[in-house]
Amino acid sequence: MHYALLIYEDEAVYGDEPDSPALQAIIGQHMAFAGSLGAARVGGAGLAGTTSATTVRTTGGVKTVHDGPYAETKEQLGGFYLIEAPDLDSALAIARRVPLAANGAVEVRPLLEVPT
């Protein structure tokens, strides 16, 4: 079964600069973690900060474009992994190993298996 591991953290812990020491340190940890997953890693990526986000919102059938993320929260979606695991317990074991720089959360969501 495939799972998405959605990584939520306060992006302020990394600072505003793309080469900040905190950001470079967590990228190194994620590179090592991704390598350790082997064939269980199907995909994934880090995301640019929320200041680069644009949201398309539908209200009453009308679509409008807004700068920024859809929701303002204390933690932002910063990246994700797509993994293959035999069951939820195995996916949770992998999620517990996802590097976080500070407080945060890793949401584990099974992907819908759509017939082709």
Rank of each mutant, 00 (worst) to 15 (best):
A22Y: 02
G44H: 06
L47H: 05
R41E: 01
T55K: 14
G28V: 05
R57Q: 08
H66E: 07
L47F: 13
L77Q: 03
R96M: 02
V13I: 10
V62Q: 12
M31Q: 08
G28E: 01
A53G: 09
V56D: 13
A22N: 14
A95D: 07
G35N: 05
G79Y: 09
A32M: 03
G61Y: 06
Q24H: 15
Y14H: 15
V98N: 06
Y14I: 05
E84S: 10
I27N: 05
R57M: 01
L92C: 09
L82T: 04
R96Y: 00
D87Q: 14
A39P: 02
L23H: 11
A71V: 07
A39C: 00
G35S: 02
G68Q: 07
L88I: 07
A71W: 05
G60D: 11
T59H: 13
A40V: 01
S20Q: 10
L92M: 13
V56Y: 15
D16K: 11
G28L: 03
F33V: 02
L23A: 15
L23Q: 12
G46F: 14
F33W: 09
Q24I: 12
R57P: 06
R41Q: 05
G44W: 14
T73L: 08
S52K: 11
T51E: 15
G15Q: 00
A71P: 08
A93Y: 07
D89F: 10
P86M: 04
I26D: 13
Q76E: 08
G38C: 03
T64Q: 15
G46N: 08
L92I: 09
G60F: 13
P18C: 00
G61C: 09
K63D: 15
G28W: 09
Y81M: 12
I94H: 06
K74P: 00
R96E: 00
G68F: 05
H66A: 05
Q24D: 12
D89S: 14
Q76R: 10
P21Q: 11
R97I: 02
G68M: 08
G78C: 10
G38W: 03
V62L: 15
